[in-house]
Simulated assay, not measured.
Amino acid sequence: MAKHRRQGAIITRRFATSAVIAAAAAVTVPGVAQAAEVVVPNTDYRFEVAGLENVPNIDQVPNIGTYVPSQNQANNYSAPAAAPAAAPAPAAQTAGQKALEAARSAIGSPYVYGAAGPSAFDCSGLTSWAYRQAGVEIPRTSQAQAGAGQKVALDALQPGDIIAYYGGASHVGIYTGHGTIIDALNDGVPVQERELNYMPIHSAVRF
């Protein structure tokens, strides 16, 4: 019987310890909050204490998780990782940019008067072919191209704009976007990239 009394005394002391924690919590917290379950270790004693979770620094009490299981859950909580932001979709290419890519693919092709691709070109044959690859039909001759497109100031040029040269717009090339054009100049000179101001400029147009 003495042994049983000692075990009872140990349980009573543990219960008293938990009761003190619970009582202190009830006094410390001025308002009523969601109740937290308190467990007396090695017994079936369980009870709830309102506001216990709001006690300042309760998570610093030694072995608090033994008495208040919810503190174990709180200490083990980890916030879910934020999903990485989706990369922005690339901007769609303009017809001019697509035409410029086509013209660039023709660099090195021979000049042949009256040719409009795909293996040989004259000046307006190159520009009309390049725009056709971009899905846009433009006039065939240099003069017609200079007259049909939207006029563009030289300080507002964009890649793919057509630059017409000489007084009668007798030559055309495609602007690259960085101070050069791609054109088919004349016999014996293959399609190539050259300086924008290599010849006197007549006008610039955009399709």
Rank of each mutant, 00 (worst) to 15 (best):
A33V: 04
A33H: 15
Q34V: 09
A35C: 05
A36T: 11
A36C: 07
E37Y: 02
V38M: 14
V38G: 05
V38E: 06
P41Q: 03
T43E: 08
Y45R: 14
E48P: 01
V49D: 05
A50L: 05
A50G: 12
A50R: 14
L52E: 04
N54I: 00
N54K: 13
P56T: 03
P56I: 01
P56E: 03
P56N: 01
N57D: 15
N57K: 11
I58A: 12
I58G: 14
D59Y: 00
D59P: 00
D59R: 06
Q60R: 14
V61L: 14
V61Q: 10
P62D: 00
P62T: 00
G65S: 13
G65H: 06
T66P: 05
T66H: 14
Y67E: 08
Y67K: 06
V68Y: 09
P69L: 07
Q71S: 10
Q73A: 12
A74P: 00
N75L: 15
N76I: 01
N76V: 02
S78F: 12
S78V: 13
P80E: 01
P80A: 03
P80K: 08
P80Q: 02
A81G: 07
A81W: 00
A82E: 12
A83D: 09
P84F: 00
A85S: 12
A86Y: 05
A87M: 08
A87E: 15
A87G: 12
A87Y: 02
P88S: 11
P88A: 11
P88L: 05
P88Y: 00
P90M: 03
A92H: 06
A92F: 09
A92D: 14
Q93G: 06
T94D: 13
G96T: 09
G96S: 10
Q97W: 11
Q97N: 12
K98E: 15
K98T: 14
K98C: 15
K98M: 14
A99R: 03
L100F: 11
L100W: 10
L100G: 14
E101T: 10
E101Q: 13
E101N: 11
A102V: 07
A102P: 12
A103F: 08
R104T: 08
R104F: 12
R104Y: 12
R104V: 07
R104W: 09
A106E: 08
I107T: 10
I107M: 14
G108W: 03
G108N: 04
S109I: 01
Y111R: 12
Y111A: 01
Y111Q: 03
V112P: 04
Y113L: 10
Y113H: 13
G114H: 08
A115D: 02
A116D: 07
G117N: 03
G117R: 10
P118M: 11
P118S: 08
P118I: 06
S119G: 00
A120V: 06
S124T: 05
L126A: 01
L126I: 03
L126H: 01
L126N: 04
S128C: 04
S128H: 02
S128P: 04
Y131D: 15
Q133V: 05
Q133Y: 12
A134W: 12
E137Q: 14
E137C: 00
I138D: 09
A144S: 13
A144W: 04
A144M: 10
A144I: 04
Q145N: 07
A146G: 05
G147L: 11
G147W: 00
A148I: 10
A148F: 01
A148L: 06
G149I: 05
